[in-house]
Design a protein around this nucleic acid. Structure first.
Lengths: 154, 154
DNA sequence: GTTCCTGCAAAATTTTTGCATCAGT
DNA sequence: ACTGATGCAAAAATTTTGCAGGAAC
């Protein structure tokens, strides 16, 4: 398997500027809630829930109403600036969709709920082959492997 | 890409007996709600939401309370007799986990929301390679390709 | 100054739980 | 008979929406 760390911090910093520019290009304004949510997303190397974004921003002294968090991630989603993940039937999680197309997939622990990113070039290649031969116009993909993390494997 | 139809009806019929036997083996009883939900799941070749199961059973004259639908799918999930999918942040969907390990993955239309099963042996192989080399004890996996279905492609 | 953005509160949606009753063993 | 299963209704959790005030352009 490939690396299990997230994306380089530099790419995530670029993504902040990219996201703000795209929002502006789409005719929207740049308010505090938008900037704060975008920065919070960029601080992490894996996906965050709306509640986690809200709590983290509040703890950092830059509070954003939960409704605004949802509105910002929905806007980002509509501009394809974030990807949404739904692992466990509870809440959705969001992470930056980096402009270069770099992305990772996810390992989810069935016991403790931990989520970790991973990437694998062979798997990526197989997915593109599949997508290319599909009858659909494929725009995105996601792979989730579920099991026991090293801590919970006992 | 492989076939895009679901599993053979015979496999799904076997699954009904398998599921009931497993529930019994786990020390549970065989009530009407359980049998009805299991049969409803087996009638389809792709995943259904709790509300769809509830509505379909009611329309078929075999009503099951929505709370029971949720309790049955949760029981099936805990015994690994169904797999749960969360495609779009809304409701969860459930489909039989066939005993032989046969399974498919999903194409989700970003426009109309349609979900269709597909399978691809090369992709499956790549996933197993990835899973085998992971630091985790992988127990399951899922792949979702999203895009435009033939009807929505324009 | 106008229009969009934001936060709060209320509503909508999906899922879970409490409890009395009923059914399976 | 005993214990677990079911349905209804209430509650909980997550997400969306209405509206009034404030900020961006």
């Amino acid at each position: 398997m490939g690396t299990t760390h997230g994306h380089p911090a530099a790419l995530r910093r670029d993504w902040v500027d990219h996201a703000i520019a795209e929002i502006s290009a789409a005719g929207h304004r740049s308010g505090a809630a938008r900037r704060r949510v975008i920065e919070a997303l960029a601080e992490h190397d894996c996906c965050l829930s709306a509640q986690e974004l809200h709590d983290q921003l509040q703890a950092g002294g830059k509070p954003v109403g939960i409704a605004s968090v949802y509105r910002v991630v929905e806007l980002l989603l509509s501009l394809r600036l974030v990807q949404r993940f739904d692992f466990d039937g509870g809440m959705s999680r969001y992470e930056p969709a980096l402009p270069g197309g770099e992305h990772h997939h996810h390992l989810v622990c069935l016991k403790c709920g931990d989520v970790r990113p991973f990437d694998d070039e062979g798997l990526e290649h197989a997915i593109h082959s599949t997508a290319d031969s599909a009858d659909w116009a494929i725009e995105g993909h996601d792979v989730v492997l579920s099991g026991r993390c090293p801590n919970c494997r006992g």
